[in-house]
Amino acid sequence: MANTSTRTLRLLSLLQTHRYWPGGELADRLGVSIRTLRRDVDRLRELGYPVEAQRGVDGGYQLAAGAALPPLVIDDEEAVALAVGLQAAAESPVEGIAEASVRVLAKVAQVMPARLRRRVEALRAVTVPIGGGTPAGPGVDPDRLTAVALACRDTERLRFSYSAADGRGSRRHVEPHRLVCLHRRWYLVAYDLDRQDWRTFRLDRLSSPQGSGTRFGPRELPAEDAAAFVRAGLDGVPRPHRVQALVAAPAETVRAHVGRWGTVEEVDAGHCRLLMTADSLDWPAMALGSLGAEFRVTAPAELRVLVEEWGARFTRAAGAGAAG
């Protein structure tokens, strides 16, 4: 008979695969008595898993929603699917999704066997992502991304090679602070130990990251947060399009929708001004259109033309649907 810990994990795995398990069938699958099954269920409850029991001859068990998310047990196929999905989500334009995806991906990658890593990479190599809005920035290798994410999490000093915008290469020794996904690109905010100052590094220009094994204490970032620090650095970099629009919605509503993708200035209780910078006008047009509020583009003229073209196209599409 399997030891108690192994059997408990097996029980948890079974409970996660079916919505409801009859008690007798579950005991048979585990090769234990009904009494032992009850003890194992009680052990899961002590660990924070909300297991509900139904009494009677046809009684059984099922996992229920709890107050907190307990650890999950997943098989090889699910682990591969999770990693591939997280890599795709890391390119998401939705605020907070990309950063959270990388944090979870780092946890999964840390414990994933090499054989599963190879399957993940094979799937990624033959999968074409479905994009929308602003084209994705230069690709970042997932291993590089997770290595940097782990160094940030563990407050471990990091060494890597870096290519500047003019092509000049250098070796860097930093204290990594946070990863930030902005304008479909990944940035590392870190304290550069050689230059004795805070710096922003684009991950697509970073290679061969290696943890030094040396831990460090946190430093105070000279900005509200890491995203604000990156944005301040990018403000001095020329970008093709600077968007301004007047939106007939409260500033807080628009700010919650666009998040870090733009700056929202309150005009009055029911109106605000949205400011954005972008490599392509498609994303600002989509963002404005998805606000569910009236808006007027004040700059640039090219965005006004694009919105007008899209509006005419959507009007024709609606007319064609009505006629059909």
Results as ranks from 00 to 15, higher is better:
H18F: 08
R7M: 01
G24Q: 15
L15G: 04
N3L: 01
S33W: 05
S13I: 01
T36K: 11
Q16G: 15
S13C: 02
L14V: 03
H18C: 06
T4I: 10
P22R: 12
S13M: 09
T36Y: 00
S5Q: 13
T17V: 10
L30P: 06
N3R: 05
S5T: 13
P22H: 11
W21M: 10
T17A: 09
A27G: 06
L14I: 05
V32W: 02
T6C: 00
L15H: 03
G24L: 13
Q16R: 14
T4C: 02
G23K: 14
L9R: 13
L26Y: 06
R35H: 09
T6F: 01
D28I: 07
R19T: 13
Y20T: 08
T8N: 00
V32R: 08
L26Q: 07
T36E: 14
L26R: 10
H18V: 02
R35D: 12
L9V: 11
L26V: 07
L26K: 08
L30T: 05
L14D: 02
S5G: 02
T36P: 01
R19A: 13
R38W: 12
A27Q: 07
T4L: 04
R38K: 15
L14K: 04
E25H: 14
P22T: 11
I34R: 15
T6L: 03
R10P: 00
R19M: 05
R35S: 14
T36S: 11
L30C: 05
L12Y: 02
N3E: 10
Y20K: 05
L9D: 05
P22I: 05
L30K: 09
S5L: 12
L15D: 03
L30G: 03
Q16C: 06
L14C: 05
R29M: 07
T8D: 00
S33A: 10
R10T: 12
E25T: 13
L26N: 10
A27Y: 01
R10L: 11
L9C: 12
T6M: 04
G23D: 13
S5F: 05
R38L: 11
L15R: 07
R35M: 09
G24C: 11
T6K: 02
R38Y: 13
I34P: 06
S5D: 10
V32F: 06
L26P: 08
L15W: 09
E25R: 15
L11K: 01
L37W: 04
S33Q: 07
D28A: 15
N3V: 00
